[in-house]
């Protein structure tokens, strides 16, 4: 299987801090690659560096064979990369509709795509004309994901979508991401919720101190409790 995204020897400095210390990773086309690790390991920095929100100080990032590490964020987005940040970053002052209109960069909203999204997140249809700032945390997360998938994207970078959400909302998000995966999307997903990670991941990368310390199949990590404890300090069972 070809790799859609590749990072080779990527270093990122933020101020005087050396956060990413030579990341090498590959995200295969059409797969969900989980990026796991303890808090502060560098997962969010990795996504932001790919997105160009923080500039890599050295190393190569390629998307579909094209170098992107020196490109500006809008140019990277226009190559077909959708980004769901940890903070959700919905535009509170805009309505649900206006948030999605902005995300649909290349034209009017596609009704079929909207209906597909409303199937997972019916709340978005109900609150179509409500200000995003008045939505609950779960609904904002739905909107944030809907914004990333309102148009077809080559690659989705999703940062901890289940963080702080109620179990029912988490299940809805997992179902949505599974469906996006079935449609052939390539996803790099940062997640602390192991249940969600096991449900969604094809392959897994584990980070620690700004480097990748483990790579392999998600199913293999899910089945290996000692390995989970060694890499992450927790076992999958503890999260069920």
């Amino acid at each position: 299987m070809t790799d859609l995204l590749k990072l080779s020897g990527v270093h990122t400095h933020i101020g005087r801090y050396h956060i990413l210390q030579g990341i090498d990773l590959a995200v295969p086309q059409g797969q969900v690659t989980m990026l796991l690790g303890r808090n502060g390991a560098g997962k969010t920095t990795t996504l932001r560096t790919i997105m160009g929100l923080w500039q890599a100080s050295s190393g190569e990032i390629t998307l579909g064979g094209e170098r992107i590490e020196s490109r500006a964020t809008p140019d990277i987005a226009r190559l077909g990369v959708g980004y769901v940040p940890e903070s959700m970053a919905v535009f509170s002052d805009l309505t649900v509709k206006e948030n999605l209109m902005l995300a649909a960069r290349d034209g009017p909203l596609d009704d079929t795509q909207l209906d597909w999204i409303f199937g997972f997140f019916p709340a978005l249809r109900r609150f179509w004309l409500s200000r995003a700032g008045s939505l609950s945390g779960g609904q904002k997360q739905m909107l944030s994901i809907a914004r990333a998938i309102i148009e077809p994207r080559k690659l989705l970078l999703i940062d901890e979508p289940t963080k702080g959400l109620a179990p029912a909302i988490v299940m809805a998000l997992i179902e949505c991401l599974k469906e996006i995966k079935r449609k052939g999307a390539t996803i790099l997903l940062v997640e602390q919720n192991f249940f969600a990670a096991r449900e969604l991941g094809d392959s897994v990368l584990v980070m620690d101190n700004g480097t990748i310390v483990h790579r392999g199949e998600m199913a293999a990590l899910a089945a290996d409790v000692p390995l989970q404890e060694r890499l992450l300090g927790l076992s999958l069972e503890a999260h069920q």
Binding site: M51, L53, A72, T73, P74, A77, R78, Y83, P85, A89, F91, S92, D93, L94, E98, M101, L102, A103, R105, R147
Partner: peptide
Amino acid sequence: TKLGLLIRAGVENREMVEALGYRI
């Protein structure tokens, strides 16, 4: 207008506007 939406969104979170592909 969409231009106005972009300005309002940019005032709130210009980084996210750029991540959506707009040259702010």
